[in-house]
Nucleic acid binder design. Structure first.
Lengths: 147, 147
DNA sequence: ATATAATTGTTAGAAATCTAAACATTAGTA
DNA sequence: TACTAATGTTTAGATTTCTAACAATTATAT
């Protein structure tokens, strides 16, 4: 049966997330943490605003997620360069370990998800999803590209 | 820049959801409600277990969402056929109105999301996402360690 | 230098979500 | 019948998420 785009995006995202959590259950990482770890793994020392944008959550949400991660000693937050407004977030050793673990699991699920896909199909899929992303993101007229 | 599948699914789902909420802001519908309304629109009288599965949320979560919807008089819950274990959920007139409104908005965003897609591309996308869904959902046969 | 803007992060309060456990009802079985 | 298992929903407690308002800091303009 043919489903709507919204349904498929939602279902796939949720299933992906659940598979991830099931795969790293032993780490005690909670729902909001893996994506932050995954981002920090390649962007250690990012400021909170940047992390929130990358993880598609609000800064206010990130505040509470980081609090939990700080309590578990996965990250530290530091001021730098005399800038007392921005807080730079760094992985601890333990945090980096779990970040790599999470990334491995992300990759594993991705491989499973794309089982049977040819390289051409994978490319086409990536292209489609990127175009959708741009289409939805387009507020009309403004062509401001960040990053 | 090429993103991971997980990132694209997550980002697209979140953006889709945000676009939807922005489009129906005046209805005061909250985050968890549109998908339930959308499902009930085609499955009026479904039991809660079925709704939860279709919306990819846990039954316990649905309990609280339905409570809010009942308070707003968008749905009613009734027992039927002397079965006092299952609760059947029905849209009220007001609920049906909002359900149709939500569906219109879903369609509108979907159209925007797929702007520039040919029919063949739309079909390919649907095929891809359906296959991913099946792949992730597949618990069977493959290297299952920790069960 | 002082007032005003913009930026960054937090708090507060509500909703959605999860897991685990409890509860109530129904069905299966001895 | 009575015991047991299965089913459908709810409760309890925690995390994630949102928006709106606030606080602190930095940048800009007069």
């Amino acid at each position: 049966m043919k489903e709507t785009l919204h349904y498929l995006l939602m279902a796939n995202h949720v299933l992906f997330q659940k598979a991830l959590l099931a795969g790293i259950k032993d780490t005690k990482l909670t729902l909001g943490q893996p994506k932050v770890l995954d981002y920090l793994r390649n962007h250690d020392g990012a400021v909170q605003k940047e992390i929130a944008a990358a993880c598609h959550i609000e800064p206010a949400t990130l505040t509470s997620v980081l609090l939990g991660m700080e309590n578990k000693e996965l990250i530290t937050r530091q001021m730098q360069n005399g800038n007392r407004r921005s807080l730079y977030v760094f992985l601890t050793g333990k945090g980096r370990e779990l970040a790599e673990r999470a990334t491995l699991e992300f990759d594993k699920i991705e491989e499973k998800a794309l089982y049977g896909f040819t390289d051409a199909e994978k490319e086409a899929l990536n292209d489609f999803l990127t175009r959708i992303h741009e289409n939805i993101n387009d507020k009309g007229g403004t062509t401001d590209d960040e990053n």
